[in-house]
Nucleic acid binder design. Structure first.
Lengths: 155, 155
DNA sequence: TATTGTTATACTCTATAACTATA
DNA sequence: TATAGTTATAGAGTATAACAATA
């Protein structure tokens, strides 16, 4: 039961934010990543992915799209030339600020059924649930790939 | 902020249930559909999809897989031969009962941080949020496809 | 050897569009 | 005309595996 409610709740949040982000051509995930890059600047990709609870490959793809759109940029970390430090461009910062009010309004619409005290309680409880289950950073709807070891030659 | 929490919460629920469902070869979505078919028997595909908040195409694909696995079956509705009525097979019913305790335990583990009173409050508030936002049955992470009208001949 | 990021591949879930069979 | 279901196609998000560059 909670699982189904979790899915619907997420679905509702996605739908409501996708709606207001659509004119700007951003998905909710992309907007979240852009916002995170501004709030936690000069983080490398893996650190950002960890902070958002997404895997490094997905983060890489999202960053590709945001970089191509001119909203953020990668910079080689001078102290570890494998890592890429992320920062929003001026354009990205402006867009984020422009979209922020509508995104907040969308969230408030979703919570409109609750009094402000209930909202506070709800977010507090939800935060505790999420924080005590950090180990499930691994999402993944998909069936696990059965690792069919296709190392060439080794067979 | 609620949006991010919603995503993590859903992610946690998926991870926890996927874990216990994995040995049976079911995804959380498939298990949810199988359970729904048992709880709402002889519903047509579209009605079931609506009840679950998923679209009819996805439901069709999931049903394909569950039918191929011998867990449920389609039956042509005699009163409307377009519709397919769904029901679990004996095998599907047994599997659902077998998996149910582990699935419930997984959910309880997730809520372990809350007292039973807090759990009740949380689920009540979450239920109200979901119920007052039924209109967002349309999930969709994806960017809307820009309908590039490829009707043949009409160009 | 281990880690950061990338590329290739695969799969779920979602979507739109076009189709078939029915109503 | 409209609806139930299917098939084809596409994109987001996730995953694993293998690789190059760097540590």
């Amino acid at each position: 039961m909670p699982s189904h409610l979790a899915r619907r709740f997420h679905q509702i949040c996605l739908g409501a934010t996708a709606e207001v982000l659509e004119p700007a051509g951003l998905t909710p995930g992309e907007f979240g990543l852009l916002a995170a890059v501004q709030d936690l600047p000069d983080l490398e990709q893996r650190g950002l992915a960890r902070a958002l609870g997404i895997d490094a490959v997905t983060a890489g793809h999202m960053i590709d799209r945001l970089e191509a759109a001119g909203l953020l940029q990668r910079r080689v970390d001078p102290s570890d030339r494998r890592a890429r430090l992320l920062s929003a461009t001026a354009q990205g910062a402006v867009l984020r600020e422009r979209l922020r009010p509508a995104a907040l309004e969308a969230q408030e619409r979703i919570m409109a059924a609750l009094t402000s005290e209930e909202r506070h309680t709800f977010l507090d409880l939800l935060t505790r649930i999420v924080e005590t289950n950090q180990s499930y950073a691994r999402p993944g709807n998909g069936r696990r790939h059965p690792r069919r070891s296709r190392a060439p030659g080794k067979e």
